[in-house]
Design a protein around this nucleic acid. Sequence first.
DNA 1: TTTAAATTCCCCTTTTTAGGGGAGCCCGTT
DNA 2: AACGGGCTCCCCTAAAAAGGGGAATTTAAA
Lengths: 205, 205
Amino acid sequence: MIKVFIIDDHEMIIQGIKSLLEDDTEIHWTGSAKTPADLWRHLKSNKPDILLMDINLPETNGIELCSKLSELYPDIRVIGLSSSDQPSIIKKMMKNGAKAYLLKDASKHELITAIKKVMKGEAYVNYTVSEILKHNKPERSLPVLTRREKEVLELIADGLTNTEIAEKLFLNVTTIDSHRKNMITKFDVKNTAALIKLAVSEKLI
Amino acid sequence: MIKVFIIDDHEMIIQGIKSLLEDDTEIHWTGSAKTPADLWRHLKSNKPDILLMDINLPETNGIELCSKLSELYPDIRVIGLSSSDQPSIIKKMMKNGAKAYLLKDASKHELITAIKKVMKGEAYVNYTVSEILKHNKPERSLPVLTRREKEVLELIADGLTNTEIAEKLFLNVTTIDSHRKNMITKFDVKNTAALIKLAVSEKLI
DNA sequence: TTTAAATTCCCCTTTTTAGGGGAGCCCGTT
DNA sequence: AACGGGCTCCCCTAAAAAGGGGAATTTAAA
């Protein structure tokens, strides 16, 4: 029997996956957790073979949790689970010890296949995910904001002008202007409006 | 028998909810859709009593879909479903004809209760949601964008200048300028940057 | 039908951004 | 010690936005 445990903050998904796995005779459901604290508590008395882990956990993020887990319990195989198909996140998860990665639109069949494959020691990535990773070779990963840039960008987004920002940060206006121009260039957008849209929608600020 | 249909882009949640409802003798699962197009197709031949609707649908947003649905099929009762607990979104859903609202961390029991209550004509909001709505009483409800304003704002957010937008919409530059100024005034922000931030984070565009 | 809101267009001036440069300083890595 | 990236500051001009008005037409709602 493959002992499976799940951590996800959404009760609906926990119960959903539980019933998806119930039919299978090889899989044994050992429980679920909604928070990392719950998880640690359960692991003391009950070590699963496989841990299904939602990445979008509130508070702690799945990536850190994943690496901590593979330190403390290297035998537990982690399968990442998320609704987002952000390549960067998936990559980070795989680097931090996840053996497989599924999107939440994966089917029952796919879920079970993934669990069994991982149990055999194989890796598993669903088609969509592998496509994402593949197409991501010419990775259009977003430029990274430096500390100062982020600071300036947040103030721009709050409606301050270069002059006002300069006063606030005790800098020269031209400096702020440089940062603004740099950001517009590095993100390859046409103006501030587009920059803000990108930054907000990509959660850079 | 209560006929229940679901629209959600995540296969896992569809299948999860399906198996949550399977046991119940009063509830009959009539199918699922992953896109609005799928939904419309199904509805032609098969009208459910209750539609479980995920708000965070890609492409179309659940709020518009909801209002369109209550126009075309006023008999179908919509239960909103989402992982986000943003008061503004929940309120909009309720305004647009949703009879109930559940978070994805709702339990099996809660889901079934909600379905049955809504079927009886009662409204249902889970505790968390009602708390959210309550604490949000001193709501600083956002101004509404008119059709034209939204159109213009989207183009602004894409980095077009007034002149470019005017050409695109076959309007005079001063018109676009007026719209921009109006929006800045009505949203009480200082400039375009702040306007875009607000619009993106409040999902107005 | 009356009224309010939406949409369109126009004037003016000042401020702010955009776009093109260049350059020196600090700091961590090589 | 040399290099690059981040950060700072400076020049210039042209374009765009902000801020202040006003006003006519359409359209939808009361």
